[in-house]
Simulated scan of single mutants.
Amino acid sequence: MDERSDQDRWWYCLVHQRVEHGAGCPNKKRMGPYDSEEAASRALTTAAERNSAWDEQEDEDW
C-alpha cells in the first residue's frame, strides 16, 4: 500500500451500507481503506470471495 493519507482513500461503512471518502464513521465500523471508490463499493463481495477461498483451503488442509 502506498503512503497516501486516509483522507485520500475510500471506505465501505458497515453502519450506513455505503462508500465513504476520507473522514467518516469510525474505522471499526467500516472496511478499508481502498484506493478507489469502485474497490470500496465491492468490499462485501471481496470479503465473501476471500472467506469462501479460505473455507475451501481449510477443507483441503483437513
Rank of each mutant, 00 (worst) to 15 (best):
R4V: 02
H21R: 14
S41Y: 05
Y34M: 00
D59M: 13
G24E: 03
W11P: 00
A53T: 04
A53R: 12
E60I: 08
E56F: 10
R42K: 15
G32V: 06
S5E: 14
A39G: 04
R30D: 03
R4T: 07
V19C: 05
E38T: 10
H21N: 13
E60H: 14
Q17T: 02
C25M: 04
T46G: 03
G22H: 05
R18Y: 04
M31A: 13
A53H: 06
A43H: 05
R4L: 07
V15C: 08
Q57H: 15
R4W: 08
A23V: 10
V15S: 12
E3V: 00
R4G: 02
A48S: 13
Q17W: 09
D55V: 10
E37H: 11
E3P: 01
E20G: 06
E37A: 12
T45I: 11
A23E: 04
W11I: 03
D61K: 11
A39W: 05
G32L: 04
D59N: 12
K28S: 13
C13S: 15
S52T: 00
Q57S: 13
V15Y: 11
D6R: 08
P33T: 08
C25L: 03
M1S: 12
H16L: 04
E49D: 14
A47T: 07
D6N: 15
C13T: 05
P26I: 09
W54I: 15
E3R: 04
D55H: 09
D59C: 11
M1D: 08
C13D: 15
R4S: 10
N51C: 03
E3C: 06
A40R: 05
W54K: 15
D61L: 15
R30G: 02
S52V: 00
R50Q: 12
K28W: 08
M31H: 07
W11R: 09
A47I: 12
D59H: 14
W10Q: 00
E58R: 15
E60Y: 13
E38R: 12
